[in-house]
């Protein structure tokens, strides 16, 4: 089981801040494909992946990252701190 978290407009489009997913996805990119199949809202949220960033177990990473042993994956738009 992986906790999938969404922030900012991804959270709004998907309509939930978090969901627990049973998945065999090997990489983040594989997980995104599974998520897109869950609902139209998911498909819309992930329609332009270049606008989405990902963190795996709270570290910023790439969509090619492995999900082996991972507990938490978060998707969000580019950050706007400061």
């Amino acid at each position: 089981m992986i906790d999938v978290l969404y922030f900012a407009w991804l959270r709004e489009r998907i309509g939930a801040p978090k969901e627990r997913i049973e998945t065999d996805a090997a990489t983040v990119a594989d997980l995104v494909e599974e998520l897109k199949a869950r609902s139209e809202a998911h498909a819309l949220a992930f329609s332009d992946i270049s606008a989405v960033r990902v963190a795996v177990d709270q570290d910023l990473t790439e969509f090619t990252a492995s999900l082996t042993g991972v507990r938490e994956v978060a998707f969000f738009p580019p950050m706007t701190g400061g």
Binding site: M79, G81, G82
Partner: peptide, 14 residues
């Protein structure tokens, strides 16, 4: 600090 805070700290403004 400021340059990294802008785009590497997970904050989003609405």
């Amino acid at each position: 600090l400021m340059d990294y805070l802008k785009s590497r700290a997970p904050f989003w403004k609405k």
